[in-house]
Nucleic acid binder design. Structure first.
Length: 385
DNA sequence: AATACGGGGTC
DNA sequence: GACCCAGTATT
């Protein structure tokens, strides 16, 4: 505390020239003294002049902020844009989300991944309708209590939509602040994230917390980038960033190495009855919960074994052809798939109630089939005539 | 504290 | 191929 930097009072650039680089870089006191006073006005100014135009920034609407923040969890801005527009058009408010049929909800999310995000969001929407009159509560704690909203998302909604002075610490913020302070703590640790929230809460401005949080994130997304060289030449806090000063941006942030993913062999069956292809619903829990899939089994089956599996499904195989192998990588599992195209007698297709026979058009419209099956979904036929 | 949970982009 | 990403819930 004895080394606290005086708070910013006039033009940030002049101010920085006057007090900063030498003094700040030399006394290696604690993080908050590096951050306090000066970083905040500099990055806020930069943010206001450089922020990207994004669909959810058009207007201040807590529901839009919520939807965008959930979509943006572990997902890039560019990927989210079209999903966001479609989602708020179809489901413009919490009440619409709360009453949306599951199938439609999954179609709206199809391809975004982490499908529990949207299930949790719908459960939270029900709570919002039932307990808060259809409007997201203006309280960090109440937001936190909603399904799918953790400390990051609660902080983002509270600060951006409601102007509440709470931090929103995501991967960008952890990276940016770790570099500015040249912290070598492992940012994967929950304890480090907690500490970061505490530090930021102390130094963030109370008059524009939303801009402050977004400035840190925007800086991380656009300038202080995660892979490749950070664009320090464009950075508003270049002169006081310790990692830049000491040329350690490549070492920071520090992250613990992650576990290798396990490999799983699977055999995918493209079962066709004339023009239609068999799909089925996945279990409600676990990987890709509640989505639709081409029937598939564990292991790499021979054609003979595949035929047996199809017979067990109470179908009558007429023809089988091996398809090209395919691979799909999840964050924690790698599927190595082999496929078979199997034609079955159409007389038998209604014996198995678990299977749905659909053409491509119908499944595009009604059934969410995750990208993992993409290599074999392409064998589905366009249209039943 | 560790693990489950998608998918796409970049180097 | 390895790594990354506007995280949260469960175990």
């Amino acid at each position: 505390m004895e080394n606290r930097i005086p708070v910013y009072q006039d033009d940030p650039d002049t101010y920085m020239e006057n007090i900063c680089s030498d003094k700040v870089s030399q006394n290696g006191s604690e993080n908050s003294s590096v951050l306090s006073g000066i970083v905040s006005p500099l990055i806020i100014k930069w943010y206001r002049e450089n922020k990207r135009i994004l669909p959810w920034r058009d207007q201040n609407n807590a529901y839009y902020t919520w939807v965008s923040e959930i979509m943006l969890q572990q997902t890039r801005v560019e990927a989210v844009k079209p999903y966001f527009i479609r989602f708020i058009t179809e489901l413009p408010d919490p009440a619409a989300l709360a009453s949306c049929p599951e199938k439609k909800l999954m179609k709206l999310w199809e391809g975004l991944g982490y499908y529990n995000r949207v299930r949790n969001m719908q459960a939270a929407a029900c709570t919002v309708v039932e307990e808060y009159g259809g409007k997201l509560p203006e309280s960090y704690e109440k937001l936190m209590s909603l399904k799918g909203i953790g400390s990051y998302t609660a902080g983002a909604i509270a600060s951006i939509a409601y102007g509440i002075a709470v931090p929103a610490v995501d991967g960008n913020v952890l990276r940016v602040v770790s570099r500015i302070t040249e912290s070598r703590e492992d940012i994967m640790k929950q304890s480090v994230r907690k500490k970061m929230e505490q530090t930021l809460k102390e130094i963030m401005p109370s008059d524009c917390p939303g801009d402050f949080n977004q400035a840190l994130m925007e800086l991380g997304a656009v300038v202080c980038v995660p892979n490749g060289q950070p664009k320090c030449g464009e950075c508003p806090v270049q002169k006081l960033c310790r990692a830049h000063l000491h040329d350690t941006t490549e070492e920071i942030p520090v992250k613990a190495p992650k576990k290798a993913r396990r490999i799983e062999n699977r055999t995918v069956l493209v079962i066709q009855d004339g023009e239609r292809t068999a799909i089925q619903k996945r279990p409600d829990k676990g990987l890709l919960a509640g989505l639709y899939e081409l029937p598939n089994v564990k292991g790499t089956l021979s054609a003979e074994e595949a035929v047996k599996v199809v017979e067990k499904m109470k179908l009558e195989p007429l023809y089988i052809e091996e398809l090209e192998p395919a691979k799909h990588i999840f964050s924690h599992i790698e599927w190595r798939m082999t496929g078979y195209l199997i034609r079955v007698s159409s007389l038998e297709t209604n014996r198995n109630s678990k299977l749905i026979f659909a053409d491509k058009k119908q499944s595009d419209r009604q059934y969410a089939i995750p990208a993992a099956f993409g290599a074999y979904v392409k064998y589905m036929k366009e249209e039943t005539r």
